[in-house]
């Protein structure tokens, strides 16, 4: 099964995430990651979901059945910028700190907290680079780790601005055919 990255524009309302997740859960698939937040347009959220799925076209169509879903794109094969962020709390006795400092420089990561025996590092990058960083710091002893999940944006002029989607969809419903 292939891993798919799906980007969706949804209305920012209570329950919308639950609907999206429910649609995926219904078929017994696990969500590898999901990241969601405000888009450039008030009232519209943009979310990125990563799932392993055979028939992703069907999922995209089903997502469109949700009233609050505005636009769904499978960007797996598009040129994209993909980013993920990780926060990791490491168990670091005083003497080992310089090693971590050196590693964070190599990975363009940041040290955001230093405790008596702990350090919290923050790193942002492509999912592969984040994984690579995690592999490297693992031997030091990760006490806690938190990843944001992937966000993806199509490069260049492609992709969909929320405002354009709203405009092309129009706000008012279409004329409904009358019954006999």
């Amino acid at each position: 099964m292939k891993k798919h990255t799906i980007v969706a524009l949804v209305q920012d309302r209570a329950g919308v995430l639950s609907r999206v997740i429910g649609l995926i859960r219904r078929r017994g698939y696990n969500i590898e990651s999901m990241a969601v937040g405000h888009s450039e347009t008030p009232g519209v959220s943009r979310l990125t979901v990563v799932i392993e799925w055979e028939d992703v076209e069907q999922v995209v169509k089903q997502l469109y059945r949700l009233i609050e879903v505005l636009k769904v794109s499978d960007v797996t094969n598009d040129p994209t910028v993909e980013r993920e962020m990780v926060l990791a709390k490491l168990h670091i006795p005083g003497g080992k700190r310089p090693e971590i400092v050196a590693l964070t420089e190599i990975f363009d990561a940041k040290i955001v907290d230093v405790g008596a025996n702990t350090m919290v590092v923050e790193m942002t990058g492509s999912p592969a680079k984040v994984q690579n960083f995690i592999d490297v710091i693992k031997p030091f002893g990760i006490k806690e780790m938190m990843r944001t999940g992937r966000i993806a944006m199509v490069r260049g002029g492609r992709g969909h601005a929320a405002e354009d989607v709203l405009e092309s969809n129009g706000h008012a419903p279409e004329q409904v055919p009358t019954m006999n």
Binding site: Q11, N169, H171, V176
Partner: peptide, 12 residues
């Protein structure tokens, strides 16, 4: 009331 349903556009 003016319905505002940007995500619901059945194609007839």
């Amino acid at each position: 009331i003016k319905l505002n349903l940007p995500g619901y556009k059945p194609n007839y």
